[in-house]
Amino acid sequence: MSTDLPYAADAEVSLSYDELEVLKLQYEKELAQVHVTVQTKFNYAWGLVKSPMRDHQVEGVRLLQDLYRAEPTRRRECLYYLALGHYKMGNFEEARRFNGLLLEKEPTNMQALSLAQLIEKGVAREGYIGMALVGGAAAVGTILLAGLIRRATRK
C-alpha cells in the first residue's frame, strides 16, 4: 500500500472541468442522501486538490481533513494527501509537518521522501525570493541613504 501513492507531480495534473463536475455531482448526491462514502469524498477532494484554482485546493484540503477525522483507518493515507495539498497551496510548514508524521511511520515511503525534498526546495525557493526582495530593499535603502548622506555632506 505504501507505494500506492501518487507522486507530487500527479497533483499538478488537474482534471478536466467535466471530470471534476462528475465527482462533485456524485459527492453532492451522496451528501443529499446523508451517507457519503469515503471513496466519493476522497475522489472529490483529490480532484479539487489537483485543480489549479486555490479555492478548489482549499476546499479539497478541508475535505481531506474531514476524512482524516472521520476515518481513522484512512489516516495514514490522508497524511500524505494532506501534505500534498498543503504543499500545493504553498503552506510548506503544514506540508512538512504532515509529511514528517508520515515519514515517522513509514521512513522508506518513496513518495513521502520525494515530497519532503520538494517541500524543502519550495521552502528554499521562497526563501531566495524573499532574500532577493530583502536584498533589493536593502540596496535601494543604501542608495537612498547614500544619497541623503551625500546631500548632507555636500551642504
Binding site: 475522489n43 482524516y68 481513522p72 484512512r74 489516516r75 493515507e77
Partner: peptide
C-alpha cells in the same frame, strides 16, 4: 490524533486505487 494501522478494505484498496 492517533494514526492507526490500516486494516480491512483500507489495507487492500488505497484511496488512489479507488
Amino acid at each position: 490524533s492517533e494514526v492507526p494501522e490500516p486494516e480491512g478494505v483500507t489495507s487492500n484498496v488505497s484511496l488512489l486505487r479507488g
